[in-house]
Measured scan of single mutants.
Amino acid sequence: MSGIALSRLAQERKAWRKDHPFGFVAVPTKNPDGTMNLMNWECAIPGKKGTPWEGGLFKLRMLFKDDYPSSPPKCKFEPPLFHPNVYPSGTVCLSILEEDKDWRPAITIKQILLGIQELLNEPNIQDPAQAEAYTIYCQNRVEYEKRVRAQAKKFAPS
């Protein structure tokens, strides 16, 4: 494992614990031996107030490669969400998460999670990743928002 990646992720964890947006979660997972795995984080993004996503808490896994922060983490909703920019596998399609697009090593975990929260309610229809959600979003916004509200209710924190 890269010392650069681990040191950056340790800084990220410290900064997150000191200050993070209300309702968001970002925690490194534990290895079988109980030690912390900084390369694999369990996160959760709350649906934004005043949107059909409100009330939901959407679980996301963030996986970092050894060359982080040169390369972005892979962000994957578990379980996958109904959304035009979420692949059926759950992987998020967002330009700041793509090395050859808008990724920059200075982007923080907090910025990534806030960017994904923004994307939930403002899909990028130029870059669809899920045919069904994309089609319904474009053709029947009322039905799309109904499905999103049902999903938010399903993923409401207990």
Rank of each mutant, 00 (worst) to 15 (best):
G23C: 00
I136Q: 12
G34T: 04
Q111G: 15
Q11F: 08
N37T: 12
Y144T: 00
P72D: 05
K18R: 14
R147N: 05
F82N: 01
Y134F: 08
K14R: 15
N40Q: 07
N121D: 14
M36S: 04
W16C: 06
Q151Y: 08
K30L: 06
R13H: 04
G23A: 06
F24E: 07
V148I: 15
E143A: 12
A26E: 02
A150S: 12
Q11V: 13
P157S: 12
P128K: 00
N121C: 10
S70W: 09
M62K: 05
V92L: 14
N85K: 03
E54W: 06
Q11T: 14
I136A: 11
D67E: 13
K14F: 06
E98Y: 15
P32W: 12
P52L: 09
K48L: 12
I125L: 10
C138I: 13
G56N: 02
P157T: 11
P73Q: 02
T108M: 14
V27Q: 02
K30H: 09
E12F: 02
P80I: 07
T29N: 15
Q117I: 07
C93N: 03
N140T: 03
R17D: 00
V148W: 03
A133R: 04
Q151R: 00
L81G: 03
A106V: 12
A5R: 04
P128D: 04
L119H: 07
L57Y: 07
W103N: 01
M1V: 10
P128A: 13
S95M: 01
L97E: 05
P69D: 03
T51F: 05
P88H: 14
V86M: 12
E12N: 06
T51A: 02
Y137C: 04
R13P: 02
Q126D: 10
I4V: 08
R17N: 01
P80N: 13
H83G: 03
S7T: 11
N31R: 09
F155D: 08
E54V: 08
I107D: 10
K30N: 06
P28I: 02
H83A: 03
S2I: 08
D66F: 09
L97S: 09
E122C: 13
Q130I: 03
V148P: 05
I96P: 01
T35E: 00
E118F: 15
P21N: 06
I45K: 01
A106P: 05
Q130G: 00
G55F: 15
K14T: 07
I96Q: 06
C93E: 06
L60C: 14
I107F: 11
M1T: 00
D67S: 13
N85D: 01
L63D: 14
G50R: 13
L38K: 00
R13T: 00
K49E: 14
A44Q: 02
P21E: 01
G56Y: 04
C138H: 08
N85P: 02
D100L: 12
W53L: 00
F24H: 05
Q111K: 15
L63T: 08
V25M: 10
M1S: 06
R61K: 13
R61H: 10
R61Y: 09
A5H: 15
L63E: 15
T35R: 02
D66V: 07
G34Q: 13
E143K: 10
V142T: 13
P73V: 14
R147H: 08
R13F: 02
F77T: 06
R8P: 07
P105Q: 03
I107C: 15
G55L: 10
Q130N: 13
I96F: 04
G56P: 09
P28A: 10
Q126G: 11
R17T: 01
I125K: 04
K59A: 09
K76R: 14
V142F: 12
N37D: 14
L94T: 03
V148D: 00
P157H: 10
A156K: 05
K14Y: 06
W53G: 00
M39Y: 09
C43S: 10
E78H: 13
N85E: 06
L60T: 09
P88R: 15
T51W: 02
N37P: 03
P52G: 14
E122N: 13
V142A: 11
N140P: 10
D67W: 06
F22I: 01
F24M: 10
Q126W: 11
G3W: 12
G56C: 00
C138S: 13
C93Q: 05
S95W: 06
E78A: 11
G3C: 12
C75N: 06
N124L: 00
F64S: 00
S70N: 14
M62Y: 06
L120G: 03
D67L: 07
C138Y: 00
E143Y: 10
E78N: 14
E98G: 15
F22N: 04
H83E: 00
G115Q: 02
R141V: 10
E118C: 10
I109W: 08
E143W: 08
N37Q: 14
L38Q: 00
L94A: 04
V142G: 13
R147W: 08
T51R: 00
Y137H: 04
A10E: 01
Q139T: 12
R141D: 10
A26Q: 04
L120T: 07
K101V: 13
F58W: 03
P32F: 06
N37G: 12
D102K: 07
L81Q: 01
A106R: 00
Y134K: 04
L63I: 12
S7I: 07
A10G: 08
